[in-house]
Design a protein around this nucleic acid. Structure first.
Length: 564
RNA sequence: GAGCCUGUAGCCUAGCCUGGAUAAGGCGACAGCCUUCUAAGCUGUAGAUCGGGGGUUCGAAUCCCUCCAGGCUCACCA
């Protein structure tokens, strides 16, 4: 199924629209309904486009197969090879020579796949946002790479994207952490292995937690909010060490940010917002805390705890307002796990209550969690958490082994292949489903994996190198089946780009890139390029495949390599 | 208890929004393909009550209802 309504303009060279117009002439249906009814058949055996006649049968009071047969007789055009009536469907077969020519003109365009859907609007993507003083776990992998991919997809759709990493660097837990370090910390260990050490002392405190210690932890956070210099200096050190480690991970993943911010930036501003909410009588006191009662099914949101310290609801409200002032964005996306759905509904509703109309343009893009083999949530405390570093190392050793098998030099490919495995392994999943974490599938190098994609790309480039390919020469060609289906697949790229944006779903691109590569690999084994009497045409096709695959892979954050 | 999400071959997933022909891909299993552009590849075979039941429809994996199972969330963590 390739085009619907607004999507109808994104297809190969108007052929589909021409066909729709033609059908419209013979059926008296308007163009829109026809385009909506038209289908890409499940297999090319059924033609390039099909048109079901079942709805027509009602108005015409005739059996669908009869209608189809009658229409098949009269609908004729130069660009159609044949029209067949099968089971109540009209199956249209394009003239292959003509189709290839039209399609390749489009696919050859430099900005093939791009569109201007976003009209240069500014979109903010809040993404990654790990908690400091904790190792970067697999839980944050999804937010990080889905966010990165969405930013790229939005750019490709004509938006200007701004990526913000909004660190979890503020809140009661850091009062706890400071206490833990005070009690069990060791400066030397902190310098040697900061995050692990902080995690150790944090866990130790949780194991030995008493009511008295809990009170002290809360007091520590209160000191932070009040701006106590000594407390903040220690906190700042923890934060810097954490960021250092995070940046190494981001470098491996190929992810970057336009701004690294954090909840701590909202310390003062959130208090102003709280006062505003009080003045407007949106907030009220309840059980010692300051809350917003959202009344409907959003329940109650806490703005300020009974000890006077702030909470993330108030900080997220003020952060949104600050960003609007700073960037004047048109849209903002929060790429955060689905467990925070209620929270973001409350944030958006609160902004709405404050009278900010732009709150309608905020979106929480959710994703499912990684679960353990038992289907349960992975947790740091339960010891089932998976560190990004460990996963990377595991995948990397697998890649290394493969590279050595081929007796190749070890270079930047090691990192890029590992990255492709990690990114593709995650992004191929629809973001909303929870994924059972399975090291086996993410470390696999065969089949539905990142390395498969890079391998396919490398083989295409190898052909072009051997032929010293310079410019495209297409000419008049009657394509083989493998050539034809590869071209059809290439032609779908613009539609995929738009769909991925409209659905905020990188897996659309990931799935496309896989089926595209599969088409190419079939073509590769069946159609020899070098020395063939179609060498020019096939080489051009290989070139267009390489170009398109590269663009598409880039949308999911994967960099290509020339050799493998 | 309430809200949201999910359930598709032994396993992991796509398709669901926008109903349409033979439910697609990968892993695993089995059988083939390297004197020709990289075998991290290709071709084929076996394997599916699309969680169960009901409804709407010419037509349901897809829409509606209901039940079952799992996940997440629901007042001072983020």
């Amino acid at each position: 199924m390739v085009f619907r309504n607004e999507l109808s303009e994104y297809k190969v060279n108007n052929l589909y629209l021409e066909l729709a117009t033609l059908i419209s002439k013979h059926t008296k249906l308007d163009l829109t309904s026809i385009v909506n009814l038209m289908r890409i058949p499940p297999s090319l055996d059924f033609g390039d486009v099909s048109f079901p006649c079942f709805t027509l049968s009602k108005t015409l009071k005739k059996a669908p197969n009869l209608i189809a047969e009658e229409l098949a007789e009269v609908i004729k055009a130069e660009f159609l090879e044949k029209v067949l009536a099968v089971n109540g469907y009209l199956n249209f077969y394009f003239d292959k020579k003509h189709f290839v020519k039209c399609a390749l003109v489009d696919i050859s365009k430099k900005d093939f796949g791009k569109n201007n859907h976003g009209a240069n609007k500014k979109v903010i993507v809040e993404m990654s946002s790990p908690n400091i003083a904790k190792s970067f776990g697999i839980g944050h992998l999804r937010s990080t790479i889905i966010g990165e991919s969405l930013a790229r997809i939005y750019e490709f759709n004509g938006y200007k994207s701004i990526k913000i990493n909004y660190l979890g660097d503020w809140g009661t837990q850091f009062g706890k952490l400071l206490l833990a370090f005070e009690l069990y910390g060791d400066e030397k260990k902190l310098l040697a292995d900061p995050i692990n050490h902080l995690q150790d002392v944090y866990v130790k405190l949780n194991q030995n937690l008493t009511e008295e210690l809990e009170v002290r932890a809360k007091q520590n956070f209160k000191l932070m909010e009040e701006g106590d210099k000594k407390t903040l200096a220690t906190w700042k050190k923890f934060k810097e060490k954490s960021i250092e480690e995070f940046m190494e991970i981001y470098d491996l993943l190929g992810v970057s940010f336009d701004e690294i911010s954090g909840e701590s930036t909202q310390n003062k501003k959130s208090l102003e917002i709280i006062n505003k909410l009080k003045d407007k009588k949106i907030a009220k006191q309840s059980e010692g805390a300051l809350i917003i009662d959202f009344e409907d099914d959003l329940g109650v949101g806490i703005l300020q705890k009974s000890d006077g310290t702030t909470i993330y609801l108030s900080r997220d409200i003020s952060a949104a307002i600050e960003r609007k002032e700073k960037y004047d964005f048109e849209e903002m996306i929060y790429e955060v796990g689905s467990e925070q759905e209620l929270h973001f509904k409350q944030v958006f509703k609160a902004l709405k209550l404050m009278g900010y109309k732009w709150a309608d343009n905020l979106k929480h893009i959710t994703h499912g969690l990684y679960l353990g083999k038992d289907g349960k949530k992975l947790s740091t405390r339960g010891g089932s958490s998976v560190k990004m570093r460990d996963i990377w190392a595991e995948v990397e050793s697998k890649v290394l082994a493969e590279l050595k098998k081929r007796d190749s030099a070890i270079d930047s490919r090691l990192k890029l292949i590992t990255r492709s495995a990690v990114l593709y392994g995650d992004l191929k999943n629809f973001r909303n489903t929870s994924v059972i974490f399975d090291a086996k599938s993410i470390t696999s190098m065969e089949g539905d994996t990142g390395p498969y994609l890079l391998y396919s790309y490398a083989r295409s480039k190898s052909i072009l190198r051997k032929l010293k390919f310079k410019t495209q020469k297409i000419g008049e060609v009657v394509p083989e089946m493998e050539e034809y289906s590869l071209i059809v697949k290439l032609g779908q790229f613009p539609y995929i780009v738009l769909t991925a944006k409209l659905r905020d779903d990188p897996s659309q691109v990931a799935n496309y890139v896989m089926s595209l590569s599969q088409e190419f690999n079939s073509f590769y084994t069946k159609c020899k390029v070098q020395g063939s009497d179609k060498e020019d045409f096939r080489a051009s096709l290989v070139y267009l495949y390489a170009e398109t695959l590269k663009k598409a892979l880039n949308l999911i954050g994967i960099d290509t390599i020339e050799e493998m």
